[in-house]
Design a protein around this nucleic acid. Structure first.
Length: 199
DNA sequence: GTTCTAGAAC
DNA sequence: GTTCTAGAAC
């Protein structure tokens, strides 16, 4: 009995040994930084790319070209770099005069290399699927760029939170960012968001 | 970070 | 029975 092969996850094409760290998913930004299809703006200091899985109609990432793994790695003198990233995002936003954006960092990012999110507040996207997605942009897990810069300048380092505290924020009940509605699940939230949209 | 899907929730 | 989410992925 049980000799047939039940439908299971397809085995990886190459097995036994995990890929080298270079190809690990957490290093994906370093590849996206050099992907001409994703690059929107680029100069000697930073690159701005389209998020590969946008969580709103407009979702960009500003990334420094020098290696900065995360917020913790930042030194006081690099607040100027953060300002530059923010300024360049504001400049890009001026191309979309009727679009509302927020600018900020995830407290505990999954991907290596510092990246500033610039995301439109419609949150209208098929890639927005989970409570984690929502809460990562709509709780204190999303650290406002201006606050991060101020912290770095005043305290000489960026104070974030523990991974445990981050997980708690990601697990909070869903709540609309524009009104008091607390939907029971993601499909209801996504349907509700159309009420705040202009078209 | 995403994909996939078992089993919870409805 | 269908919808939805949470957790594994070697």
């Amino acid at each position: 009995m049980a000799t047939s092969t039940p439908t299971k996850r397809a085995a990886p094409s190459s097995n036994s040994q995990r890929p080298a760290k270079k190809g690990h998913w957490s290093q994906g930004l370093l590849e996206s930084m050099n992907d001409p299809n994703l690059i929107v703006e680029s100069d000697e200091r930073i690159v701005i790319i389209k998020d590969k899985y946008p969580k709103a109609r407009y979702h960009f990432l500003a990334i420094p070209k020098i290696n900065v793994p995360n917020l913790k790695a930042l030194k006081r003198e690099q607040s100027e770099l953060l300002r530059y990233m923010q300024d360049q995002c504001h400049l890009l936003a001026s191309k979309y005069p009727h679009v509302e954006f927020r600018y900020g960092y995830h407290a505990i990012p999954s991907m290596s290399q510092l990246h500033l999110h610039m995301i439109s507040q419609d949150f209208d996207s098929p890639c927005l699927k989970t409570k984690r997605h929502w809460n990562s942009f709509n709780t204190k897990y999303f650290l406002d760029s201006a606050d991060v810069i101020r912290c770095l300048e005043e305290r000489g380092m960026v104070v974030t939170m523990t991974p445990i505290a981050g997980e708690k924020l990601l697990d909070l009940p869903l709540k609309c960012h524009k009104c008091i509605y607390s939907p029971q699940n993601m499909p209801k939230l996504k349907q509700h968001l159309y009420k705040h949209s202009n078209n």
